[in-house]
Every structure is written in C-alpha cells, then in structure tokens.
Design a protein around this nucleic acid. Structure first.
Length: 774
DNA sequence: ACGCCGACCGTCCGA
DNA sequence: CGGTCGGCGT
C-alpha cells in the first residue's frame, strides 16, 4: 500500500498531476496541506525531481513551518533542500544576494509600520504638508496600494496629471521612496515589488532563479496581490530541456476565504487563473474532514449569499453533531463572562477536553480586552494573539534600533529613535541642526553626527553626541572579532547604554520588571537564533530580518495548553474543537466601515467570507453570540444582530436566551449610563432585528424560553454559604496564601477579593477560585 | 531639556 | 475609553 492510497480521488488527481499549471480549489478543511506535501513527495519519489528545484510559498511562518515538518515526515532523502518559505522571507533572501544592482546595500533594513510612520512624518514636514488636513496614514495607504499594484512613483505622477491632489500624493510617494533608499531601508511592500523590479531589470538574476525553481507551489493563493502574482509568474516560466517554456505552477486556494483585499489581495488572481493559463488543470476538493455536518451546513448557507464565486459545495461524511448555538447577551461584558464561564464548565464536566481545544474569535483586537479580564478572574490560562506584538513594545523597539544602527548606519529612523534614549541631554533643537547639516552635505544623519564638532550652534551637545558616536563605533568594532557573539554584543550594549538601569530609575516598579523581562526574552531569542544558525553565519542583519517578518500567529504552538483568543483574520488556517465566534452585530461584524463603504456590496461580501472562515474553524461545536449593548470608543453602542446570523437557517441554529438577569451591582460597568432608558437607548428590539432579515422566523424567537427573572432571585438565598469570610486566611492553588478583604454576593457566585502575600490583590469568583480556609 | 497635563481624536483587519 | 500630541511650566 502506497502513501497515496489514503487520499480521496480528487486529492489523488492533484497529487499525481505532472507538469503544467494546476489550480487546486480547496475548500476549508479539505486537506490541502496534505495534498501539497504528498505532491512534493510524489514529484521527488516518482518523477525524480530534484528537491532543490522545488519552491513552496506560504504567507505565514507558521504555515511554512508546518508544511516543512510534514514534508520532512513523508519525503525521505533530500527534504531539507526543498525551499519552503514565506513570500517575504523568500524575497528578502533573493534581495540580500542581488539588491546591489538596484542601488541598495545588502545590509538593508526592513521598516515596520511604526518606522514607516516616522519616515512619513519627516517627508510631510519636509514638503510642508499639514498633517491635520491629510493624515499620514492616508499617504501611506495610498503608497502601499500603489506598490501592491507595482505602480512606481514616476507612473503615479504620470497618472496624476491635471489632478492637484494626486500630484501631491505623487510628490509624497517620490520623496518617501527617495528617503527609504537613503536610509537603505525597504518597507513591507518594497520587499515584494523590489524583487519584481530586480527580476524585470536583471535578466541574470531572473534566469538564475527560473532555472533553480522548476516546480513552484503556492498556498493561500487567493490572498496574493498583483505584485506577488507577478513575482510568481516571472519565476514560474522556466525553459525545459526541450527549449519549451514551462509553467510548473501549482496554486492552492479558496476564493471563499479571500479576506485580505484591504492589503491588496487581488481575487482575480484566482478567479482568472484559467484564462491566464489556458492549459491549466483545475481540481476541486470539496470533501471537508474537519467539521460536523451542522457546522459545515451553516457555513455553506452563509457563503451562498455571495455572488461571483467559483461554483462549489462542501460536503462531509462526518456526523451531524451538536447544533450551532446563538446567544444574544445584554452587553459585551456579560458576553465575555458567559463565554468564559461556559468554557470553564465544559472543562470541568469533560475530562477529555482541555483549554487548548477552545478558541474565542472576534472581528477586532479591541474586543479581546473584556475577555482577558474575565479569564484572569476565573484563572483560565489563555493566550491572546496579535493585540500587542512583542516586537512593537517600546523597550524592544529601542534595543532593536540600537542593533539596526550598528548594522546599518544609514537607517536614520533607528538612529533618531535612540540618540536620546536613555536621556543623554540631546534635544530637539540640536537634532534639527544635525538634520539640516546632513541635508546640506548630502550625508546620512549618522555621518552628520560624526561631524558634530563642525556643526554650528550645537554647543555643549557636541560632546554628548561624540560620546554617543564612539559608543556605537566601539560596539560595531567588537563585532569584527571572530569569537564575539551577537549575544555578547547585546549584553555589552545594555551595559554600556545603561538602558536597564534607566528603566529601573524612571519607571514604576511593576512596569520596569515587565520591560526587563521582555528584554531578557529578546536576549533568549537572539541566543536561540545564533544556535539555530550555527551552520550558516548568524548575522545581525539576519536576526533583524527574522524579527521583522514574524507574524503573531507564528508564535502559536499546539503544545501549550491555553484558550486562544484572536481575530478572524489570524484564525485562518487553524482549527479548534470548540469555537466561540462573538460580537455578531451589524456595525461590529460586518464592520460599520464595510456597511458605510462606497460599494457596501463588495465590502460586505468580504466580511461574509471572513464569517465563513470563522465558522469553518470549528470542528465539534460552534457558539455564536452578540451583545445588545457594547462599549466602543468610550460610549455605549446598541447594535442589532448581525445579518450573517439571519443567513443561517433556523433549523440549524439553537437560539439561546442569555439566561441572565439585569447586570449585577458588582458587575455594573456602564455606571450611570441608562441602558434601559427609552431615550438613551434607541435600538430596535432584538425581535424586530431578526424579523427584518428573516420572514420565516416566529416573532418571538429571541424572547427567553423562560421569562426573564428578577435579579434578586439569582442573587438570592440559593447560594451555598462560604466557609470563610472577610479577615480569614485562605489558600489558593496558584497564588498561595492571603487574607480575604471583601466578599460580594454576585449573580451565581461570590466575588471574593483576597490580598495574597506574594501575588498581590486578586478578585475572583469563589466557585472557580476554590479557596481553602486555613 | 524635559516632564506634566489637558485637548483632541478616532479607529477594523496585517506581513 | 485610551493613546497621542502640543503647549506650558520648571
């Protein structure tokens, strides 16, 4: 029996496809990674393709890592020679080798969003554009779109003829690009489009890679933008031994999961694949192995409301499973409370299931806050993906700016970030003079600093600048020593700058500890990088690049046991037994931006695809929820239930009452905001909401099965009394011993505040805290 | 040069 | 509500 016998007929066809373009339309959970890895194995084992000639492209490092692992498992010899990598890393690797032909240095730095903003501020200041009128974000997103479409500043200017506003944008774009180059830096979009530029201007480089990569696989093809598409199609035009041009391009995607239009993804890439490659073979994978039949049917019903899709219908042989549930809660606070309680209940009731089986998904990162609060209260281990990236923390960015300064002195953004961090008494006025000097003499900011003594009007600051420069120079020269590691460099840097001491002196004790812990983590990451890269040379550029290209999901591991919280975007490609999809309200999901867009139809279709992605993450159970009232931007908003909920037929949906009385006094978060006041609360009632979208529904579906009970019944005497009280010493499994400072009777439980000897003051629910009286 | 405070403001999603 | 920025006081 061969490894291919476990595949279904369509999967098998895809795996055994020989040469020429191949489009695999792989529905959610249809085993596409399996097909890709088996296909690679097939090419090597049966077609005698050299592993070295295979390139597999993904969007995230996590996807690349997973594919690498699975390829290693089924491909015997030579698997390590297969190039499995993300678009961005691949392009960086190519550019590190050839970028000099484009006039950059090989040690170029990569700018993240913050760096881009800083640079754009300089550009706008220089061009005397009032950032009050047009925000820098507008310029940056216009430039980003232009780059995604491979439009150069020159082309942009040509298109702008006669349009004053566009001309302004063109001017900004040109200046921004000029400064990037002066800083020897690339932004995220440049990474792709500079590679395309390289391929289009440097025949030798292109041919080198065309000859090398004879078989190209692309995952999540629906998310490629125009630049990425051009990159792939240039690469996938190799000439075979008979002198014929071959397109051994295998792309895998699902148009229904295209959710990155906002960052330039061009859905036409997948929809028009057959027109672009008339000899393309198209294979559809429509059997889903992931979800229960109920979940899958719900997903199908929702996505069926979109138009202009590739025709396909997912099916499954899995059992029907539990119905999808929908609950409308009173507010976001209650939503979080109930969902987290439900997770705790399920885990308590079912020994088979653990925290890692649960995911809470939402539309926007801001929604994670309330959940975090509740999870801490209930002592549920959790991990939030994406809200604050490790590498965006101030202390990490500062340290990285030092490293960037050492690595690439042309990176003025990095130099300016740290020249006065920690405080060295170098002020804004001084920096302006240095900047002016640099511009006058056509030199980089850092080089101007080296000439500080020749700059007029700097005065006392000159000596301070000189000592900064010699600090950087001495660190830089250390790096030349063969026995000197990057970790040594970082440690010496911290010592010489006094960065940690500065944190201890100026910050609150607690935040200082956090920051220092983060710096320690950075040191470990650097050490890990050096260890892993021992065969190749572990360069500073290499580390900085790795750091710049990590996504938040990349750090998600299956071995850690915690509930995972993330946006729907981050969740793509993942699966969980139990999924809570929350905030299903018009205005939240679909977002008000999409509802009020110029062409709402298209935007809402994208949101619907996002909804489809969310639903199809669930394997066993899917729980949908919405809140009547939600705190947003400091004010309470009343949204009606998302239209997507109404698109799921009633027979698939188990509609639950919130089962919750009026908010408890101890939980009342909206203060005096009169949630129930008729004047301040204009929302349509939930009953009306749903009726507007579904005529088949009974008018009272959202009314509680049991009539709403007054609060006192819940808070009333049916709670078992606690065996401890205020003033008692208690012990907690995680926090150790402490003294009870207050006990408040809440809805179904007591909220107990304990002052722990080592862990500080914590609020917790008695039922979950399992406190023992000592 | 730097720290504090009040006004303003504005929002999605992300490599 | 939370972060950011600009003005002002030291």
């Amino acid at each position: 029996m061969s490894i291919y016998d476990t595949l279904n007929p369509e999967q098998k066809r895809a795996v055994l496809h020989d040469r020429g373009p191949l489009l695999i339309l792989a529905g959610a959970g249809s085993g596409k990674t399996r097909v890709l890895t088996h296909r690679i194995a097939y090419l090597i084992d049966e077609r005698e393709v050299n592993p070295y000639q295979i390139l597999a492209l993904t969007f995230t490092n996590k996807a690349a890592r997973e594919m690498r692992e699975r390829v290693d498992k089924i491909v015997g010899y030579g698997a390590e020679n297969i190039w499995v990598s993300t678009f961005h890393s691949t392009c960086v690797r190519i550019l590190r080798r050839f970028i000099e032909t484009l006039g950059y240095e090989r040690s170029f730095t990569i700018y993240d969003t913050d760096d881009q903003k800083a640079l754009m501020r300089e550009v706008l200041k220089y061009l005397e554009i009032d950032t009050k009128k047009i925000k820098e974000r507008a310029f940056l997103s216009a430039i980003s779109s232009a780059k995604d479409e491979l439009i150069t500043p020159e082309e942009y200017a040509l298109n702008a003829a006669g349009d004053y506003n566009k001309q302004k944008y063109a001017q900004v774009y040109a200046e921004y690009q000029r400064r990037l180059k002066a800083n020897n830096a690339l932004d995220f979009d440049d990474i792709i489009c500079k590679t395309v530029e390289l391929f289009e201007t440097n025949r030798e480089a292109l041919q080198y890679y065309q000859r090398r990569f004879r078989y190209i696989m692309v995952d999540e093809y629906q998310d490629t933008n125009t630049a990425q598409f051009r990159f792939i199609s240039l690469l996938a035009s190799s000439v075979n031994e008979f002198g014929e041009t071959e397109h051994n391009l295998c792309v895998v995607g699902d148009d229904d999961q295209s959710i990155y239009k906002f960052r330039g993804a061009n859905i036409r890439n997948i929809l028009d694949f057959e027109q672009l490659y008339p000899d393309a073979v198209v294979i559809k994978l429509e059997q889903n192995y992931r979800s229960t039949a109920s979940i899958l049917e719900a997903a199908n019903e929702v996505i069926a409301n979109n138009r202009g899709r590739k025709e396909k219908k997912l099916w499954t042989a899995n059992e029907k499973g539990a119905p999808v549930t929908f609950t409308q809660y009173e507010n976001d606070y209650e939503e979080a409370n109930r969902i987290t309680a439900s997770i705790a209940d399920k885990i308590a009731a079912n020994p088979e299931c653990s925290y890692r089986d649960f995911a809470i998904l939402y539309r926007t990162n801001a929604q994670s806050r309330v959940f975090e609060e509740k999870l801490i209260l209930k002592s549920i281990p959790y991990k939030i993906i994406g809200s604050i990236n490790f590498y965006q923390r101030k202390e990490i960015k500062d340290i990285l700016a030092y490293l960037k300064t050492i690595d690439n002195g042309l990176d003025s953004i990095a130099v300016k970030r740290i020249i006065n961090t920690p405080k060295r008494g170098i002020g804004l006025a001084t920096l302006d003079r240095v900047e002016a000097y640099a511009e006058r003499n056509m030199m980089s900011f850092y080089d101007a600093l080296r000439h500080a003594e020749h700059i007029d009007g700097i005065g006392r600051a000159a000596s301070k600048i000189m000592s900064f420069v010699s600090l950087i120079e001495s660190l830089k020269s250390n790096l030349a020593r063969p026995d000197y590691s990057l970790t040594d460099l970082l440690n010496e840097l911290l010592e010489a700058t006094g960065y940690i001491r500065d944190i201890q002196d100026t910050e609150e004790e607690e935040t200082a500890a956090d920051r220092i812990a983060n710096i320690d983590e950075l040191i470990s990451k650097l050490a890990l990088y050096e260890e892993a890269a021992e065969t190749e040379d572990a360069s500073l550029s290499g580390f900085l690049e790795e750091v710049a290209l990590v996504a938040d999901v990349d750090n998600l591991t299956e071995d850690a046991n915690h509930v995972v919280l993330m946006t729907l975007h981050s969740a793509k490609g993942l699966e969980f037994p139990y999924v809570y999809l929350c905030g299903l309200e018009d205005g939240v999901f679909p977002s008000y931006m999409s509802i009020n867009a110029e062409n709402p139809e298209a935007e809402i279709e994208e949101e619907r695809r996002l909804c489809y992605v969310g639903i199809t993450r669930a394997m066993q159970e899917l729980h949908l929820s919405a809140a009547r009232a939600r705190m947003l931007r400091g004010e309470t908003q009343y949204n009606r239930t998302s239209r997507f909920v109404a698109e799921i037929p009633r027979y698939l949906l188990n509609i639950c009452g919130s089962g919750k009385p009026a908010p408890l006094a101890s939980e009342q978060r909206y203060g005096s905001s009169p949630i129930r006041s008729a004047k301040a609360a204009p929302p349509v009632s939930s009953t009306e909401t749903i009726q507007r979208y579904t005529n088949a529904l009974p008018s009272n579906i959202f009314e509680k099965k049991a009539p709403e009970r007054p609060a006192k019944q819940f808070g009333g005497g049916n709670l078992a009394p606690l065996d401890y009280g205020v003033g008692d010493t208690v012990s907690h499994i995680k926090f150790g011993t402490g003294i009870v400072t207050s006990v408040v009777q809440g809805g179904r439980d007591y909220e107990v505040t304990v002052d722990f000897a080592s862990a500080g003051t914590k609020k917790m629910l008695a039922g979950f805290a399992k406190l023992k009286k000592l």
